[in-house]
Each structure stands twice: as structure tokens, then as C-alpha cells.
Design a binder for these strands. Structure first.
Lengths: 211, 211
DNA sequence: GTCTCTCTGTGATGCAAGTCACCGTTCAGC
DNA sequence: GCTGAACGGTGACTTGCATCACAGAGAGAC
């Protein structure tokens, strides 16, 4: 499926108009379903991937298949790894899963190359993408290096609330997975936060009570 | 101080010859001493930085000034953060310290920009730099997420041995700092490894006994 | 030689968090 | 309605690591 220029402009503001035209012509849009795996560890990456709709979760995997959540990708963002990997058909080092239904834009590697020399806005987009992902990684490192679980949980919930509203439809298990912890630990910490009046716990949902 | 083309070719193989000429003309070489701080957190980055000699250590810092070691930069590598940050005069998010005496190459931001459009090899160098640093970060995350201290210590020592030879002139304190642990823990683990015959402990040095 | 500083070894203790075990509640599907 | 699965709560235990405290062993300065 092709994209139209208007959509592209909204998703990726600030690029040259000819670039939008080219993108509309050469990029393809692919719908994804919640739970779909977009990228496996070790899989060869053939094209650059941008997010149009939905939320993508990136994980790191160890030998035993443990998934360690590293960050989200949201509309308007790009999978940075796919920039360089696609250019050389290198292998993915992360696991990408769709959290919600959505759609991703694929750009053929030769276009990626061509635009890089042709459009300054494109190379700036690529670099700033990299920088943003880099920063996300650094924040992930900060979290595990400097913070305790309760701080991380609070930070996590606040971010979710900012994105989805005060009532979060999420299970303790899922939170535990995202924070690379275990369900029991999260349950206990949530209880503690409830007794402090920060939130109210319901089945399958958490209600945030603070500003 | 200026650089000569031969030197540059050795350090950064595979670039276009005209690019080497330009680099020789526009880049400046700056000597650094062991312990020098090259980049502070929050400091504005004005130019792109490449490593010519010596080893640079990158740290992440928390509010209390705790340093968390993330990775090394060695000759031929580039400080990826400086690529994009210099373009926009953004602030550094990491702390860079010289571990040994050495020298770094500075490239003015306007050249960085110009070369990006002009030389394909340059933009590939920049992107693969990013990718490599990205990979280092992922490895750092792996280490803290999936490994215990003794595995990390063994991995660390092996890498040091590969780089500096079988006798490492290093104190337990320094190792602890690099692994973001404490001296006592490292001492204990080293003792355990010594009793397994993996290594021999001396004052201010560690002798690796295995292949 | 003595003094002092750094480096190293080691026990005791504390704590965050992962794991195990088990149970009650809720809810969808039959 | 019953049943099985998913969800949530909680106690008991283990573990990996940090911290504290202290002691002995080089090694350089004088």
C-alpha cells in the first residue's frame, strides 16, 4: 500500500517537500497486529522501518530466550537499527513486537542511500533518530544501574498515565515483564503504593489517584 | 596541529582519498593526558571527536555524581554522540575521560555536515560508528540484566588480557569501578578465581593463567 | 629504621529482589 | 450452574551484592 504526502508530513514534520513525494512513491505501508513479531534476533534486515501507527516494543534477548524490554517506538519514530543494518543486510540484535495494532512503513535500502546524499533533512532525521534511541538506551541503563524497583515502577506508571490516561488496563504480570522483574515483586510494591494513597488497584486495571 | 593523510588512512581505512585530503586540512589534533576529562555531562559539544591514540572511557552519571562505566573508545573510533550533538550544539549526556595519554581529532561541525552529503564513505563511517556504539550499549545492558558479577568479571578480565596481555597492572578498586561494583566484592571473586587456578593475584597486578 | 598510605583479605550484617508455594477471587465458556 | 484459567495477594526462603569494620602486607618518604 502507498502513503499519501499529507500523512507523511504529519508523521515526519520538517522534511523537504520533494522528499515527501519520493517517500509517497517508494515507501510501502504494512499493517501489523498486536502481538506480531516484526523483527527477530538474528534475522537479516532488508529495509528501513518507520512507525506510522501503533506502539512497537523492543526487547533484548539472552541465550535462554529471556526478554529484556528496552524501549518503545511510537508513530513518527524509526527503528534506528534498521537504518544501518538494511544498508548492509546485517542481522538484528533485538526483538521487535507490536504492542497494539498499527502499521509500519518500509523503505527500500537503495532509497535510504540515495536520500542520504540528496536530502539534508533526511540525514538529519536519521541522525536525530539515532540520537533519540541512544538516549532511550542510556535511560534504560540509568534505570537498572541507579534506581530501585519502586522508583522504576513509579516512573513507569507515570509514563503510562501520561500516555493512556489515569486508568491503566494492564496486569501486574505485564508490568513485571516490562520492568524485567517478577509478578510477586510488582504486586507487593503496588500494594505499598496503594496503602500510600497513590493509586487504587482493581482487577486488570490500575487507577492513578495523584496529579 | 594538523594530521597527515597516511596517518588518517591507517586509522580510518576505506574512506575516499579526497576525504583524507580534506580531513588532513580541516581536522585538528589535540593531545590528551591520562585522567583528562574530555566531555562533561551537560557540556555543549561543538565539534565531532575521533580517537587517534589512547583509550577513552565513557561514563554515565547520576544526580549524586556516581559514575557508571558504559564503554571504551579506542583509536579509529568516534564519539557517536558528538556527531549529532555538534551539528546542533546539543549537550553531552555522558562523561568522557582519558584512561591513558593519547590524542583526539576534532572536526568542525560545518565540515561534518558538508562531508555527509559529499562523501558516501563518510556517512557510512558515521552510521557504522553509531551502530557500533549502539551495540556496545546493548552489551552493557546485557551484562547488567542477564549476568552475575562473576561472569562479568571473567568477561572483563578476558577482554583486558586480549588488549593488554596476560599481566594486568590494575587494582581491585579500579576493576570495581569499571564494573560498577565495590572493591570487597571484586576481591572476594578474584580470590575464588585464584583458588580455581584461573589466575594469580599480586600486588597491583593480576596474572592470567588460562589460554 | 619508622611512618604512613595504598592495596588487599575477610568476617558480620543488612537489604532488595527473585523464587517457591499456596490460596482466594474473578470471569469466560461450556 | 460448573470448571478451568487467568489474576492477584502473601508468607517463607534464598541469593547476590553493598556496606561496615578491621587487620595485615607492601612500598615509598624521611
Amino acid at each position: 500500500m502507498d502513503m499519501d504526502v499529507l500523512q507523511l508530513k504529519q508523521l515526519f514534520p520538517g522534511l523537504e517537500s520533494e522528499l515527501y513525494e519520493e517517500m509517497a512513491a517508494d515507501a510501502t505501508l504494512r499493517p501489523v497486529k498486536a502481538g506480531d513479531i516484526l523483527l527477530r534476533v538474528g534475522q537479516t534486515i532488508r529495509s528501513t522501518m518507520l512507525i506510522a501507527e501503533g506502539v512497537i516494543k523492543l526487547y533484548r534477548e539472552d541465550e535462554d530466550g529471556n526478554e529484556f524490554f528496552i524501549y518503545h517506538l511510537t508513530p513518527g519514530q524509526a527503528c534506528s537499527l534498521s537504518f544501518i543494518c538494511s544498508a548492509r543486510s546485517e542481522k538484528s540484535e533485538v526483538l521487535a513486537k507490536a504492542l497494539t495494532d498499527g502499521s509500519v512503513i518500509s523503505i527500500p535500502p537503495e532509497k535510504m542511500d540515495e536520500w542520504m546524499g540528496k536530502y539534508k533533512s533526511w540525514y538529519q532525521f536519521v541522525l536525530s533518530s539515532y540520537r533519540n534511541r541512544f538516549e532511550s538506551l542510556l535511560q534504560t541503563i540509568d534505570a537498572i544501574a541507579f534506581s530501585t524497583m519502586d522508583e522504576r515502577l513509579e516512573f513507569y506508571l507515570k509514563r503510562q498515565v501520561a500516555q493512556f490516561g489515569k486508568v491503566l488496563n494492564i496486569t501486574h504480570q505485564e508490568i513485571a515483564h516490562d520492568l524485567n522483574s517478577s509478578r510477586e515483586v510488582i504486586s507487593r510494591l503496588l500494594k505499598k503504593m496503594e496503602s500510600k494513597g497513590l493509586l487504587a488497584l482493581h482487577r486488570n486495571s490500575i487507577e492513578w489517584l495523584q496529579a
